[in-house]
Amino acid sequence: MPARIIIADDHPLFRTALGHAVAAAWPDADTVEASSAAAARAALQHHADCLLLDLHMEDSQGLSALMDFRQDFPALPIVIISASEEARVYAAAAQLGASAFIPKSASLQQMREALVAVRDGDQWFPDAEVEADGDLAKIASLTPAQRRILDRMRDGLLNKQIAYELDISEATVKAHITAIFRKLGVISRTQAAMLSAKLDVDQPAANTPSA
């Protein structure tokens, strides 16, 4: 049975480039292209051997997308594709369960090397000496429902607005926020939002504020 590889990127030309790299690593692979996280998720309802995931698409921004796919497909190798060249982003992707990180500036040969490593059960990341981040472990401990609420808190929504958007009661929102604060070790929405900024890939992560 040929390998089935999902390429999720909203730029057609870059999907083509990734397709060439996939063909070099998996010569007989069945490649499926997706221009959104939703389309990739739909494709993953069938068998897949690897997901190549762009961190910036219309319906996904930052490392939250990696966390969502990792949660729902725990055994699936996920290769992150990103324009970011920050060492902290490479390290964060590794800590959150990615198998590889391919910067969009990488050559076709580097892309192939990364995919061959993943194909063979290894990992591949650009050289970077960065320690594991305890705050990311806290964020990773949140449930998908709690992460959805945290995202809306970052957008400045009030409890009643979050309840309306997610079709849940305000009491449920409050209970989730209490759990979020406890897991993240913070005491305010501002502190929670600043900590969750570490999932962003296009700006420096904020330091966790002191309580």
Score class of each variant (00 low, 15 high):
58 E>T: 07
54 D>T: 02
66 L>Q: 01
116 V>K: 12
210 S>Y: 03
123 Q>M: 14
78 I>P: 05
14 F>P: 04
193 A>Y: 05
50 C>K: 06
54 D>L: 04
63 L>K: 00
58 E>Q: 11
125 F>C: 10
115 L>Y: 07
43 A>F: 10
195 L>H: 02
119 R>P: 09
201 V>H: 01
206 A>I: 00
72 D>E: 13
208 T>N: 00
118 V>S: 12
162 I>P: 03
19 G>F: 11
102 I>Q: 02
33 E>M: 04
72 D>A: 15
62 G>E: 03
48 A>T: 08
103 P>M: 09
55 L>R: 03
168 I>V: 15
188 S>Y: 11
194 M>Y: 05
2 P>I: 07
189 R>I: 04
170 E>G: 15
203 Q>L: 00
171 A>E: 10
46 H>I: 04
129 E>S: 09
188 S>F: 06
18 L>G: 02
34 A>P: 10
32 V>D: 07
27 P>W: 00
29 A>D: 14
59 D>C: 09
22 V>N: 10
89 V>R: 01
203 Q>R: 02
139 I>P: 00
190 T>Y: 04
198 K>D: 01
203 Q>P: 01
145 A>S: 13
23 A>P: 05
79 V>I: 11
95 Q>T: 11
180 I>P: 11
138 K>L: 10
71 Q>A: 14
98 A>V: 02
5 I>C: 01
62 G>P: 03
140 A>E: 12
41 R>W: 08
155 D>N: 11
69 F>Y: 13
77 P>A: 07
191 Q>A: 15
99 S>I: 04
103 P>L: 06
171 A>G: 06
177 I>N: 03
133 D>I: 11
151 D>M: 06
205 A>N: 02
124 W>S: 14
110 Q>T: 13
64 S>P: 00
139 I>M: 11
209 P>Q: 00
150 L>N: 04
24 A>D: 14
169 S>R: 06
75 A>G: 07
169 S>I: 07
31 T>L: 06
